[in-house]
Computed example of a mutant assay.
Amino acid sequence: MKRAYTYSIIIPAKNESLNLCDLLPRLVEECLGAEIIVVNDGSEDRTSDLCVQYDVKEIRHQYSKGNGAAIKAGARAALGEIFVFMDGDGQHNPKEIVTLLDKLDEGYDMVVGARSSSSQASVVRWVANSVYNKLATFMVGHKVDDLTSGFRVVRAEKFREFIYLLPNGFSYPTTSTMAFFRAGYSVGYHPITALKREGKSHINLIKDGVRFLLIIFKVGTLYSPLKLFTPISALFFSLGLSYYAYTFWSVGRFTNMSALLFSTSLLIFLMGLVSEQITMLLYSGSHKESTNKNSD
């Protein structure tokens, strides 16, 4: 199907030649006319040879900078009006690019390929992703079906607005999804089936799991700080009130601990207010810069 826009397929890859030798010919055959970019993130295998063999564009990092850094390099170099991000580990089916683009054509700014529970690599990974999705849903106020999926299509102009926010590690999907929600852009989800990868994953479940969790709270403070700070403030206020009631009933006085808990509650709430103002300035500055670029 011929589309009215151009699109670029961006694939971060680190030592994934085993999977790329199957993925690249399928992309070349099925995505006629698309720009295909492989970001070689310091690979020590045949990745460069495969890019030459299948005549796809390669961006080579002299050393490994991380999945997010590879995504940013690909986005800066890509010429398409739409970006298609997919992993180089063979888990994403090229045939599903069409369905994601069709969903984008319905008026969305970003469409994420949402994996089913059967597509998760393990039960532990599924449980962790479920927790991330629920936390992100609370933060943004919209249902997040798959926060960490690396298979997504997005309008290039809008994605570039948030490149400076993206970390160099594995959490670019988390950051970009929540940033799009914060900016008021439309984010859609489409079910996909993740295939079994060949070779060993580069994700460390414990280290990167904690990192994903920290990223959610980090981006939560960028997205809606009061949603994060207010419950914590309320918790300390409740503790202070409860302790005051206990000490008033038992010894008939207001203690230093109650004062500390009340003060902590107030300070956390004020920090949330200040963070909210900073967030508004940050996104309003980003919007103005984008508007100026469009007018130029």
Rank of each mutant, 00 (worst) to 15 (best):
D89E: 10
A114C: 11
A34D: 07
L214M: 12
G68Q: 02
R152C: 05
A156P: 04
K2P: 04
K200F: 08
S130R: 14
S130A: 15
A194M: 09
F262N: 09
R211H: 10
Y223S: 11
L100A: 08
K158L: 14
N129W: 09
R125N: 15
A69I: 03
F269K: 12
L222K: 04
Y164H: 15
I268L: 14
R152D: 00
L261I: 08
L79H: 04
K65C: 07
F170G: 03
V127R: 14
S258C: 09
A121I: 15
F162G: 02
M271S: 12
I71E: 00
S186L: 11
N129Q: 15
S238F: 07
E289H: 13
V84W: 00
S258K: 04
I10S: 01
C31E: 15
F254S: 08
L147T: 08
V52E: 06
K57Y: 05
E96W: 07
Y108Q: 01
N129L: 13
T47A: 06
S48N: 02
A34G: 06
S250V: 14
N67R: 14
L27Q: 07
V187S: 02
V210C: 04
T230M: 11
L267I: 15
D102V: 01
E30T: 10
M139K: 01
S290A: 15
F159H: 09
D146K: 04
S224M: 08
V28G: 01
N129R: 08
Q62R: 09
D145E: 14
T148D: 15
P231S: 09
Y132D: 15
G220E: 05
T193N: 08
V38W: 01
E44A: 07
F85M: 11
M86A: 07
L282R: 10
A136E: 07
L214G: 13
A136K: 04
V154H: 03
E30D: 08
Y63C: 05
D109H: 14
F138S: 10
K95F: 09
S224K: 12
E30L: 10
I215H: 09
R155D: 06
L195F: 10
L101C: 06
V124Q: 15
I36Y: 03
H61V: 00
L24I: 13
V153P: 00
T291V: 10
V124L: 15
N67K: 11
A78I: 02
E81P: 01
I268R: 09
L24Q: 04
N19R: 05
L241S: 11
L222V: 01
K158W: 05
F181H: 15
G90F: 03
S263K: 07
V98F: 06
L100Y: 06
F83D: 00
L226C: 08
G33I: 06
D296H: 12
Q53H: 03
S290R: 13
T279E: 08
V123R: 11
A128Y: 15
K143G: 02
V144C: 04
F83Y: 10
F254Q: 11
S118M: 12
I268K: 09
K207Y: 07
Y185E: 04
S43M: 02
R60C: 03
F236W: 13
N294F: 11
S233N: 06
F254G: 06
D89F: 05
E29W: 02
K207V: 08
L226K: 13
G90H: 03
S43T: 03
N93F: 05
H92C: 12
S186Q: 13
E35I: 00
V127I: 15
M139Q: 07
D45V: 03
R155C: 08
G252A: 09
S48V: 00
Y246V: 11
V251Y: 13
G169D: 14
